[in-house]
Design a protein around this nucleic acid. Structure first.
Lengths: 294, 294
DNA sequence: AGCTCTTATGAATCATTGA
DNA sequence: GTCAATGATTCATAAGAGC
């Protein structure tokens, strides 16, 4: 029993797990160029979580974030992706435009705004206001460096709906016609593919509950969110970076999925909590306090 | 039987239904100030539906729309709302930013960007691409003139039953991953089951299929979409405007819900189709061909 | 009436081909 | 070189038919 456990720990140790304590703006410049396959993060929202972060004002959010994004652009591999989980807050009864401005600014910086995924929070925060309903969605903005990038769609396929069972008994005339309009040879193959297929590709809307397993952090997203993007945009052995780690959800999930994970977190409290829970070693790397598993 | 039918027709006639044939930029200036309670529209998307509209280029979308929005701002009552259903298209592998720029421009014009609702299209267009999944959502951007505006939240409350709890036990993995929110989906079949349930307020995510009952128009949205916003932002006897009527879905729904409805549509073919189906009279109002029910 | 089963198709996007 | 047209790909709904 004991040897099995040791074996498991050794397995995990194959994939490095590092959490650096400090400001993303200070630490990112220390990372090498083109060394990361996926950046996924949920930065502090404007003027929120004031007690933890500095409380960046909405009007200065873009100028605060753009230099950081510049460093992210540098450390990301050409085939890499950057997922930014963010939502504009309401200020004086209005949605603030800093997220829109941020997207435009990042494009000018060289990022490609490839896609915007919607995280539909089914169990969103309760409440009632006279001029709006509960906010049940957040943006997961997908930036890339190039038009072509790494994407492993098969890794996130979902089970098909029941419609398939009844439908495939008889192929409709329309389906046949549609198929015949294609290459002649494709038809027979087609049926076979559909019959054996039980999985379908998802859409750009993610339905996830805000489980928030880690109660210590104010804004932890559910494991499933980073998990989905990590599976979609990386393979085993790739490197995942979260420059605003928070409670470390992204790091933990990446490590569990056999990816190298690298985090930056300004709060030493969160860092210590994460390190203790994972039994990480505290080391000094070029003057940066780092918690690592090797 | 016949008299009943006549009575129904007379009931409908209490609420005016007008469709004006022409360009929104030309016709809107003819409308009086502060005369509309709700504007809801789905303008032509950039470079799409070329056969019908001019095919506005994405790079010129904002400059095309802003003058129209200025007129909309004028004709809307201070307590009114403007719902803009739109989605940016992909151009050269990237999402174009014209919608973001449009929001920023409309704010500078005096609009308040109060909220952004998400229309989650459950049955989105199929397809597979190497760098993106199927697009399953559109924006319904909510602009107002003032922080305080008319909103009748009770009109769109959703039955909330305990069946969810019992059902969740038997949910398959598929169902769990797929959207199970009952908001605006799958209603009308077993209303009696809902009668004794409590009501809950919906969120800012709408789940609707693109049923597109009107096959004549390329881009008709489902009845439920304008219906939801009309109920939410107007009362009986209020006035609803759709400056890009298309097949007239908004007008028809507004009329059915006992609101005065006013539409503008550039295509005389769509106008004629709508007028014939509704038995509207063709009149000339200050040089504008108008189809009306009175 | 209330099921099940059948049928049609939808604001799409990308790679390739041809001008 | 750029730009426009065409083909290939694909899932979930509603409406309608059948029992």
């Amino acid at each position: 029993m004991k040897s099995q456990q040791l074996l498991l720990i050794n397995e995990e140790l194959e994939y490095s797990l590092q959490l650096m304590n400090g400001d993303a703006g200070d630490i990112l410049p220390c990372l090498p160029d083109a060394s990361v396959d996926l950046i996924i993060t949920s930065p502090p929202y404007a003027d929120q979580r004031k007690n933890v972060y500095g409380g960046i004002h909405a009007d200065r959010y873009v100028e605060w974030f753009v230099p950081i994004a510049g460093e992210l652009l540098r450390v990301l591999k050409p085939s890499g992706s950057f997922i930014l989980n963010i939502k504009e807050r309401v200020l004086k009864g209005e949605r603030h435009t800093y997220v829109l401005e941020l997207i435009i600014a990042l494009r000018q910086q060289g990022w490609l705004w490839t896609e915007e995924y919607i995280w539909h929070k089914k169990n969103c925060y309760p409440g009632k206001w006279p001029n709006r309903f509960r906010d049940a969605w957040e943006r997961c903005i997908h930036f890339t460096k190039n038009k072509k990038f790494a994407m492993y769609q098969e890794a996130v396929m979902v089970p098909m709906g029941d419609w398939r069972n009844s439908r495939l008994k008889n192929l409709s005339a329309t389906d046949k016609r549609r198929d015949e309009s294609r290459v002649m040879s494709g038809f027979g193959k087609k049926i076979e593919n559909w019959l054996n297929r039980k999985l379908a590709y998802p859409t750009n809307v993610l339905n996830l509950a805000t489980e928030c397993s880690n109660k210590n952090h104010a804004a932890a997203f559910p494991d499933k969110l980073p998990e989905w993007f990590i599976k979609l945009f990386t393979q085993r052995g790739d490197t995942v970076l979260d420059p605003f780690s928070g409670s470390g959800t992204t790091l933990q999930v990446a490590n569990k999925l056999d990816r190298h994970s690298l985090g930056i977190e300004i709060s030493s409290v969160y860092c210590e909590q994460f390190a203790v829970a994972r039994d990480l070693k505290k080391v000094d790397k070029n003057g940066i306090i780092t918690y690592a598993n090797d």
